[in-house]
Design a protein around this nucleic acid. Structure first.
Lengths: 214, 214, 214, 214
DNA sequence: AATGAATGAGCCTTCATTCAT
DNA sequence: GATGAATGAAGGCTCATTCAT
């Protein structure tokens, strides 16, 4: 209907999801109030229950929406071809960019982080659609680098060691800011940080490969 | 205080703090209810306001209490002497143990993690008394390993890369459990995990040192 | 109206009334919801207000509709002729059948019962058009049986004594089912029950007549 | 505590029950609002949930309270001894008085009537503690009058025929008032009405007994 | 003639807090 | 020193109703 005039306000449905994304990311599911979300979306208090049925269902809708907007789709192809070292670098840059980003769907990763600490029924969806596919790609890359000498479990641990370094810049932002104020979280440092993590991890993987061959 | 007569119940004051620590760690500040805390402490609903004035003040008291009970005091000495590789191993084992522990003051680290993601005014105290001292020790160890060729900022990044791998096993426990169900979080795997992180990080540091020398 | 083309769905207007009749009878005016009614009628949420103006007005329309469909018209003639005992029996059977019936306009009597307990402005209409005419017939029959010796008020009381026994099987169905589970409410017992009430009441009336003669 | 000064206001607990009894009787469970109840009881909106946990539990409490205040206790003994005709008269008078009464626990019977038409889980309690014991006494009386010639089921039907005449003056009060305005519902007519029902029913029972003997 | 979107009043309930004892 | 009763603000949600189409 209103598709022909894209300059108009987005549909209430979408405005609610985007407002909810912000609020849930800022305050968590429990602390967020439907009233606040509706107000930010410029809608009536009853709008959430009209469009989504309940606060819980709205939360699920936010998760789905975030999933569809995920950065992954853009970079997925680049992670399939080329030398594994370069693909690792691409993955690290992509995820870190998403984590440091302050843009419109900035709350995607904040929500993922919240889900990690305090899972809701929505986590399962996130894992199957977002997290597991990425983890498989990363483990494939790692396997190419370390060779067949490592057990599957060891590859998992390496995978955790790599992604943990990236998520740290989200989880611990508040602490880092206070502890090491020189650190800057703008997108400008994105490449520097990504390169550190990449080199740090690549060295470690190569050393493991060398150990395994012996 | 009541230590001389350990057969008695601890003072209401203390029971409240310990109950609150559990509940805040499990559910977060907002979702936790004063009723639940008082019930677990075997005290009246009004006890929190009577003893601490408000829910917020109780939370602060919990943070102070957690700080005083911190594990660090026990292991601090061991981190001052010996070859840096061994001291790094000791640090990693100590922190990981604290993170994986389910014991009585298990909520200390859970609360720290929550503060990292969603800081309250209490975070500053935690940083100055708990986090900064440890970070200094870790950075000293790293410096010994990598030598003078790295900038101070690079040492910070290495420090983050190491501790992030440890905190990951707290933050992302829920995700790991679903993603890689073979993983076990008992204390029994504590040494295996710690050794992985240690070897992974040590390889990376040594590679950085070699690069820097060139 | 739409009777000429019986294969079509009835007009929305009629479907709403019939759905509303069911729902109001089942749940009462207050507990019934406009959404439920519209859903059962296969109409939009706004349909009630569009066609009737408000929930109240819909209720009035239901009462009028029920009145027009009343069973009475069919049996009225039979109540005018013959010996009074037989006419009493016909009346009792007719009313009891309506009360026990589960068929399409079953809610007519349920609504009447609700109105008796919790009158709305619609009750007056029901009384003048439905209830008073029947009561006059019954009292005429009673008068024929008891003769002129009883006062008009006493005839009223006898009338109440008779119809009360019938309505009891509606009002108190839930209680009877629990109290005396062997009791069956199918139409199959309709004649047995009607005969009990008829004989019980006839004996009482004849005794009153005999007393009055003395 | 406050027992020593009975002139004080009753405890909130009791005030709530009595206010709730009125409101539930007037408007039914669904239509009654907690706000209204609390206001009439002079208590805060949260009082119901504090004292009873929920609106449902309050309703159950009202039913129990009504049960304990039931008129039955006073007249139970009188129903055990003497000629059955007199005991029947006592029963009829007692129940009718309760039904016509406008006094403090006037809502007891209104609630019972509502439960009959629209049962809640509380009806079972009412039946077992209030209704079944009375019904047993009445059937015992009837049996004495009609002798052994009637089946148990026929005695049940006679029992229904008698009590239905009494409840009618509750259920159908609104209708009677409009249909036969000369009728008066004060306690003053209580004996006249009771005597009518008694004589009406006794005649019927004796006739049944005579038929059965033949 | 009819509808889907949206509204605002009001519902029951929960919560941290206060007060009298 | 500590408590049970009571409070009022706010929470999520339901409902009859209205409005633009």
């Amino acid at each position: 209907m209103a598709e022909s005039i894209p300059s108009e306000l987005p549909e209430t449905h979408v405005r609610l999801i985007e407002a909810a994304g912000e609020v849930f990311a800022e305050q968590g599911f429990h602390s967020a109030t439907v009233r606040d979300i509706c107000q930010r979306a410029g809608a009536n208090v009853a709008a959430v229950n009209y469009h989504f049925g309940s606060k819980e269902k709205l939360y699920e809708a936010v998760l789905h929406y975030a999933h569809k907007r995920s950065f992954q789709h853009a970079t997925r192809e680049q992670l399939q071809e080329g030398p594994p070292e370069e693909r690792l670098r691409t993955f690290i840059r992509g995820l870190l960019k998403g984590i440091l980003d302050h843009g419109s769907p900035a709350w995607l990763h904040q929500l993922m982080c919240r889900e990690m600490m305090q899972p809701t029924p929505g986590l399962d969806m996130l894992i199957e659609h977002e997290i597991r596919p990425r983890s498989q790609m990363v483990r494939a890359i790692i396997r190419e680098i370390v060779g067949p000498g490592l057990s599957e479990h060891e590859v998992w641990l390496c995978c955790f060691s790599i992604v943990s370094q990236l998520f740290f810049y989200h989880h611990s932002r508040a602490v880092i800011r206070r502890l090491h104020p020189e650190m800057c979280f703008d997108l400008s440092v994105h490449e520097e940080l990504a390169d550190h993590v990449w080199r740090f991890s690549l060295s470690a993987l190569r050393a493991r490969a060398a150990e395994a061959q012996r």
